[in-house]
Amino acid sequence: MKILVLVKQVPDTATKIRLNPGDTAIQTDGIKWVINPYDEFAIEECLRLKEKAGGEVVVLSLGPSRVEEAIRQALAMGADRAIHVMTDAVIDSQVAARALAKVAQEEGYDLIVTGKQAVDDDQAQVGALVAVELGLPQVTVVIELNVDVESRRIRAERELEGASEIVELPMPAVITAQRGLNEPRYPTLPNIMKAKKKEVKSVPLDSLGVDTTPWVRVEELTLPPERPAAKILTGEPEEAAKELARLLHEEAKVI
């Protein structure tokens, strides 16, 4: 079974966002870059599928040269090889999806797995857009995945609000991974060493022949408004609780 896993590199979730006035992108100096947390679940699931059914796991990642670090990490987790679509351009989800789908098409696949959402732009689009580009069915926000290699059928559980649903679909398909799907492994030292020798093919975005004009354009970035200084109550718990309840009732008028 040939599985493609889409991996995006994003700022570490501990990053404090800083902006320069007028900029339409965040300040990136000093940022620690990591694999998008949901993509770790995607990678882990692909590795487990390969361990069961055999085959190959290929990492697809689009971004500037720094992305290679995330790719090496995915390889250290156990993926076999990678394709890096190289670009410094400002793009949107549709451009990314078109480019990644083009590479997928050339590469061939039985299954494509992505994260449910990249925690930088929070668009949660690329998986479904890749599916549309390739004419594939999709199941998103997956918390349990069963692939029947013989019958080429998938049965997946996806998370809803306060519920979940079971979806059945044929292979090939696009799956997007949610937290809870599995517990991603840590790369072992020998695997980190091995990953250094694995193949990473670099493909310039402009060589793919896809339209790279973004449709969704950021015009302005702002930080959330500062909250006014908090009213902090100390002292006896009963008194503080009473005063808090009064403030919420009379001042904020929310209870």
């Binding site: 700022p11 990053t15 965040i26 930088d120 969704v216 354009r217 950021v218 970035l221 702002t222 959330p224």
Partner: peptide, 20 residues
Amino acid sequence: LGAVRPIYAGKAFARVAIDS
């Protein structure tokens, strides 16, 4: 139409235009 959407889970807000 234009829109505002949170990014980085609400650490910042993006005002966006869609050109399609």
